[in-house]
């Protein structure tokens, strides 16, 4: 493994902004893995750093193919994470809305361009992503339905679900979308958490990546696959949203991955003054809880659950 400085911006008062990469092997650019891009993506940087530790060990055991190169970048944005700010410290811009970047543009456009230049030629790209709404997900592989997506490869992670997302206008400036446009097989991996560390979820995603690496011939040995079932592939539009009608204190009664029956109560919303139940939310169909809201308060008209029927 080689630790490499991939991009830096000197700062006047803070330490320099640095993006560090960890490179394994050399030769064919087989895989690039990106961790957190936003300052609150703690689970993402954790998972990515654990992946580095795991690959180091595998490399030491001689289990990585020498003629395949793997680059892992745990954080594109240490400056925000160190001050517990979600977006770029000075102008609040989101690096994951700046791809493919512009090297003569604004700061985060430059960061995106500087990084993208170094990661765009990999055959496969994985990003540990987070959702714009606070909540927990069932672990899955997500890809944009851009016309370039490779669903067959996405199955190789052996995660329970592969979700195809119909791109919205702002998606066109994300890393995942631009990787695909530049002919990298791009996958976003969602674990259960973002703001907190979830050890089990991290391990699940790392196992998924190792399985993928084995299927791509980057690992010398196969990973034990026996207990895995075939992933279910669906588009995000197939998810059934359960929406709140009122605002208040949110009491969740259902967990991610839980199987629920039609009519089963999933949550209730309480009046913040008198503590009484103002709304009960029920499952509209039999299914599995794929996404669950995870904040103590809820606004009206929020999709607090997404069910996979």
């Amino acid at each position: 493994m080689k630790k490499e400085l991939l991009y830096t911006i000197p700062s006047l008062y803070r330490d320099d902004f640095r993006i560090q990469g960890y490179r394994f092997g050399h030769g064919k650019k087989a895989l690039c893995v990106v961790g957190s891009m936003r300052g609150n993506e703690y689970q993402q940087i954790y998972t990515c750093s654990q992946l580095v530790a795991r690959l180091k060990k595998l490399e030491g055991e001689g289990l990585l193919k020498e003629d395949r190169e793997v680059l892992v970048i745990p954080s594109l944005n240490p400056s925000s994470m160190n001050i517990e700010k979600r977006f770029w410290p000075t102008d609040n811009s989101d690096i994951n809305r700046m791809f493919p970047g512009y090297s003569l543009g604004e700061t985060t456009q430059r960061i995106a361009a500087g990084v993208f230049e170094q990661i765009k030629d990999y055959e496969n790209g994985i990003q540990f992503a987070s959702f714009y709404m606070p909540g927990q997900f069932s672990p899955h592989v997500r890809m944009m339905k851009s016309g370039y997506e490779n669903v067959e490869k996405a199955r190789k992670f052996g995660l329970p679900y592969v979700v195809l997302r119909i791109p919205k206008p702002y998606d066109t400036a994300t890393l995942n979308y631009n990787w695909q446009i530049w002919e990298t097989n791009a996958f976003s991996l969602y674990g259960s958490a973002t703001d907190v560390i979830d050890e089990k979820s991290a391990r699940q995603l790392i196992e998924g990546i190792l399985r993928f690496m084995a299927s791509e011939g980057i690992l010398k040995e196969d990973i034990e696959n026996s207990e895995l079932s075939e992933p279910r592939v669906f588009t995000d539009r197939e998810l059934l949203a359960v929406r709140s009608k009122t605002s208040g204190i949110f009491i969740n009664l259902a967990e991610v991955n839980q199987r629920v029956e039609k009519g089963q109560q999933l949550a209730c919303i309480l009046d913040a003054g008198e503590g009484e139940v103002t709304e009960r939310l029920y499952a509209p169909a039999d299914g599995v809880v794929f996404f669950a809201h995870s904040k103590p308060l809820v606004y009206a008209n929020t999709a607090v659950f997404k069910l996979l029927a």
Partner: peptide, 10 residues
């Protein structure tokens, strides 16, 4: 009023 939505606390 064009649109009115309740917030969680009064």
């Amino acid at each position: 009023t064009v649109v009115s939505v309740p917030l969680p606390v009064d």
